[in-house]
């Protein structure tokens, strides 16, 4: 499973970084990035799915 962030869609709300710091990190300008993109671990996959579900911008995309 792969996850990516569409930065054109992203709103810099910070939700993903605040709630899932294991998977997302934020630059000083509020831009999120992924600490990993290939999710082998089930816990990380759940985090990615939760983040995608609640992102106010719908900017987190999960590919099977």
């Amino acid at each position: 499973m792969k996850v990516r962030i569409d930065l054109d869609q992203c709103h810099r709300s910070g939700e993903c970084c605040y709630n899932h710091p294991e998977l997302f990190e934020m630059s000083d300008d509020g831009e999120p990035s992924l600490k990993m993109t290939d999710l082998a671990d089930a816990g990380m996959r759940l985090r990615a799915e939760q983040a995608a579900e609640v992102c106010p911008a719908g900017a987190i995309l999960i590919e099977a």
Binding site: D8, Q9, H11, G14
Partner: peptide, 18 residues
């Protein structure tokens, strides 16, 4: 898309380390 562009000029300043 213009809305997102305009918003993101400042949005990142109101979260996180900044």
């Amino acid at each position: 898309p213009q809305h997102r562009w305009l918003r993101n000029i400042v949005a990142g300043q109101f979260v996180g380390n900044r």
